[in-house]
Computed example of a mutant assay.
Amino acid sequence: MGNLLVGGKSIPTDDEGYLVNFADWTKEVAEVIAKEEGIENLTDRHWLVIEFMQKEFKEHGSGPSIRKLTKESGVSTKELYELFPKGPAKKAAKIAGIKKPVGCV
């Protein structure tokens, strides 16, 4: 277990840095996690993916697979890797405040 410090508040994370409680997520939390993941600025395209990830999580209890993400979010695989280098589904899930998608190692 770890903690993420955002605006003077300590937010619990698991050993891989994913939020323990989705209710702790805010846009400020997302921006802090993004910076830790090497993404300096979240653009409208980042937010499109983040919001899609959260919608899937709320509806199904887990984040979408990379395949579903590319088919239904309106963002191509190539763009996903540009937006979230080195593991877009895992990185987008972490920034979105949800659990690591099933099947991601």
Rank of each mutant, 00 (worst) to 15 (best):
K71N: 15
D44G: 05
G103W: 13
E56K: 13
P88E: 13
F84K: 04
M1Q: 10
V29T: 09
Q54L: 09
L4I: 13
S65L: 07
P101Y: 04
G61H: 11
E37M: 15
K35G: 00
K71Q: 15
G38N: 11
K55H: 09
K58I: 13
W25R: 05
L83C: 03
T77W: 13
L69Q: 06
E16P: 00
K91T: 11
V105D: 14
I66M: 15
K58C: 04
F52W: 12
T13L: 12
P85K: 12
K90A: 14
G103L: 12
P101E: 09
G61P: 03
E59R: 14
S62A: 10
E56H: 08
Q54D: 08
N41L: 10
F22I: 05
V6L: 12
K68A: 08
K68F: 03
T70F: 04
L5C: 09
A96F: 07
N21P: 00
G61W: 11
E36A: 05
V20R: 02
K27Q: 15
A93D: 11
V6P: 02
A96Q: 11
N41C: 02
E51Y: 09
V29C: 06
F52E: 06
P85A: 09
R67I: 11
K86H: 12
A34W: 01
K58S: 07
E79K: 14
L80D: 06
H46V: 06
I95V: 12
Q54S: 04
P88K: 11
K78F: 03
T26Q: 09
L42Y: 02
K90D: 11
K78V: 15
E79W: 02
S76C: 08
G61F: 10
I95M: 11
D15W: 06
W25G: 01
G97V: 05
K35I: 13
Y18L: 03
L19P: 00
F57D: 04
H46I: 08
